[in-house]
């Protein structure tokens, strides 16, 4: 079931670069990452690409395939018609280091800006009691494999470098939502700071992030929109926030 595949792979670095044509054999069931590995082993020994698990679990092999942000390990070659040329380019929202490898340090800086979990004072290991139904909301967001495809596709930063300073991006909105919905988190005002410090307000809910998420996390519907709505509520009624937090605490303790 082998087929001959025509590819165009972006090669270059932070200064120059361009698409290079490559012809390579592909076998039945192979994914784009297999093809890149074959090109590496037989034609371009120094072709730079990040990858780790090749099973859709680590989020390393993020790139753009025919312009769509995707994990190369989860993209079947068979999804493309026989005569189609597959174009492979690096993530566009981040600076290129070499070939398909980009500098994603933006994301690690943003991670550092999100306040961490604050457990109730005096709670000891082994004491937490939480119901499955209460942890499930946060668990959805903890499925995130940090592939940063959502960050890459979000047009707030994709085409607007200047927004990066004040915009944490979808990956970190779900991180904030996860902590906000964590049954034991004691830090207040997470939604407010999401709005005021992390740029939640810049998101205009086009759902591009949700569409590219390989873990199918409903980023917009389950994290961003609920936070936006409650930020609006609390502007008018701060007692609501306090009330909900105290009630939740009583359930827990």
């Amino acid at each position: 079931m082998a087929r001959t595949l025509k590819l165009r792979i972006w090669r270059g670095d932070d200064k120059t670069g361009g698409l290079q044509d490559v012809t390579v054999e592909a076998n039945h069931g192979e994914v784009v990452l297999d093809i890149i590995h074959r090109v590496q082993a037989t034609q371009m020994g120094d072709l730079a690409v990040r990858w780790n698990c090749k099973a859709g679990k680590c989020g390393s092999c993020s790139m753009e395939i025919n312009g769509k942000p995707r994990l190369a390990c989860m993209t079947q070659v068979a999804a493309y018609p026989e005569d189609e040329v597959i174009t492979i380019t690096p993530l566009r929202a981040f600076p290129v280091i070499k070939d398909l490898v980009t500098d994603v340090s933006f994301n690690y800086k943003k991670a550092m800006e999100i306040p961490s979990l604050e457990m109730p004072a005096g709670m000891k290991p082994g004491e937490p009691r939480m119901q499955q139904v209460d942890v499930e909301r946060s668990q959805e967001f903890r499925k995130c494999i940090e592939c940063f495809l959502c960050q890459n596709t979000c047009h707030v930063i994709r085409d607007h470098e200047e927004n990066k300073k004040s915009f944490a991006g979808p990956r970190f909105f779900i991180r904030i939502a996860e902590l906000d919905m964590h049954p034991l988190d004691m830090l207040r005002n997470r939604k407010k700071t999401a709005q005021e410090e992390h740029g939640l307000g810049l998101c205009n809910i086009t759902k591009c992030c949700t569409e590219v998420c390989p873990e199918h996390i409903k980023i917009t519907d389950n994290a961003i929109i609920p936070m936006k709505e409650r930020v609006a509520d609390e502007k008018y009624d701060p007692i609501r926030w306090l009330g909900s937090k105290i009630r939740r605490r009583e359930d827990v303790l």
Binding site: M123, P125, R129, M130, Q131, Q132, V135, Q139
Partner: peptide, 18 residues
């Protein structure tokens, strides 16, 4: 394991919440 939970891990729960 309990220490991980204090650091934010959210394991699946029993009906008693453990």
């Amino acid at each position: 394991i309990w220490e991980l939970e204090m650091w934010g891990a959210l394991f699946d729960r029993t009906s008693e919440g453990k």
